[in-house]
C-alpha cells in the first residue's frame, strides 16, 4: 500500500491523539475556490481529507451535504474534474492522505478499472463508497487493491457481532464508524455509546477506527477523540461553506481554516486535559 494513510494514523497515535478527518464536497462552492479550501483544511490542522464526490442522489446524506452536492454539480464538477483537483493538490502536498467518499454510480460510469488507475495516478489514497456494501464491492475492491488504494468500510450501530466479520474482511486503511443510524449532519450519538462501539470494533480489528456523523463542535470532537483513532467532521464544515457561498464572502478559506483550527486544537488537547 501507498501508505500516507497508515503513516498519518501512526504519527497521531505517537502524539497520543486522534487524527482530525475533515470532509468537504469537491468543487463546493465552485471549482475556482475548491482548491483553496483543501489548502485551508491542511493549514487549519486537518490530518486527513475526505473529499466528497458529488452525486445527484446522495441518499445517505442530510440537508447540508445534499446542498453541497447541488452547489458543486451546479458549477460543473465531474469525477474527471475531482481527479484533476486531487492531482493539483498533490503538487504542493505529498503527505496529507486524501480519501474519496461518495456513491458508486459516477465510478461505474467512469469505468471501475479506469477510475482506480486514474485515481491512484492522481495521488488518491482510498475510497469510501457509501452504497457499495461488502456484498456488492467485489466490483470495485480488487481494482482498488490492484492500484494500491485503500477500501475503507463503514460499520454502523446496526452492524451486529454476527455481521462485523463480513465488514472487516477486506477492509483497509481504517474503519469508519457511523455513530448514528441516520443521515449525515443530523443527530449526535451519546459519548458512552461511541466509547463502547469503538471498543467493540478495536477488539475485532487492528485497523484504526475513525468516528463520524453528528460531530459538529470542538467539544464533541474532543469527546470522541478520547476514544477513537480518528474524528470525522463533515456537515458542519459544508454548512459553513454553504453560508459563505450565499453571502459571497471573499474570506471563505480563512473561515474554513479558523473553523478547522478550533477542531484541531480540541483533538490535540483532549487526552492531555483528561489525563490532567
Amino acid at each position: 500500500m501507498s501508505d500516507r494513510l497508515s503513516r498519518r494514523f501512526a504519527e497521531c497515535a505517537a502524539q497520543d491523539r486522534a487524527a482530525l478527518v475533515t470532509f468537504v464536497t469537491a468543487g463546493d462552492p465552485d471549482l475556482e475556490r475548491g482548491p483553496s479550501i483543501l489548502a485551508a483544511l491542511v493549514a487549519g490542522g486537518a490530518d486527513i481529507i475526505e473529499l466528497g464526490m458529488p452525486f445527484t442522489d446522495p441518499m445517505a446524506d442530510g440537508p447540508a451535504i445534499q446542498a453541497g452536492n447541488i452547489r458543486s454539480l451546479g458549477t460543473g464538477t465531474t469525477l474527471r474534474g475531482v481527479l484533476a483537483m486531487i492531482r493539483a493538490f498533490r503538487l504542493t502536498d505529498g503527505t496529507t492522505p486524501l480519501i474519496l467518499m461518495g456513491y458508486f454510480n459516477p465510478i461505474l460510469a467512469y469505468g471501475v478499472e479506469a477510475f482506480a488507475d486514474a485515481a491512484a495516478d492522481a495521488g488518491l489514497d482510498g475510497t469510501i463508497v457509501v452504497d457499495l456494501p461488502p456484498e456488492e464491492d467485489a466490483e470495485l475492491a480488487p481494482m482498488l487493491r490492484g492500484h494500491g488504494l485503500h477500501n475503507v468500510r463503514l460499520a454502523t450501530p446496526t452492524t451486529d457481532a454476527k455481521r462485523l466479520p463480513t465488514v472487516l474482511s477486506g477492509a483497509s486503511g481504517f474503519v469508519y464508524y457511523v455513530a448514528v443510524a441516520g443521515v449525515t449532519g443530523t443527530a449526535s450519538a451519546a459519548d458512552a455509546d461511541i466509547a463502547s462501539a469503538v471498543a467493540r470494533l478495536k477488539a475485532a480489528t487492528s485497523l484504526p477506527v475513525a468516528v463520524g456523523f453528528g460531530i459538529k463542535t470542538p467539544a464533541q470532537a474532543a469527546a470522541v477523540g478520547l476514544h477513537a483513532d480518528g474524528v470525522v467532521v463533515g456537515s458542519a464544515l459544508v454548512s459553513l461553506i454553504g453560508a459563505a457561498a450565499e453571502t459571497r464572502a471573499n474570506d471563505l478559506p480563512e473561515q474554513v481554516e479558523h473553523f478547522v483550527r478550533g477542531l484541531a486544537d480540541a483533538v490535540r488537547t483532549a487526552r492531555v486535559r483528561t489525563a490532567a
Binding site: A60, P133, E135, P157, T158, T159, D160, R163, A181
Partner: peptide, 19 residues
C-alpha cells in the same frame, strides 16, 4: 444474492444492510 443476470443486487448503505 438478488441478481437478475447483471442487474439487481443490494446497493445500500451499511446501516440498512442488516435490515
Amino acid at each position: 444474492r438478488g441478481h437478475f443476470g447483471a442487474f439487481g443486487g443490494r446497493y445500500v448503505a451499511e446501516t440498512l444492510m442488516p435490515l
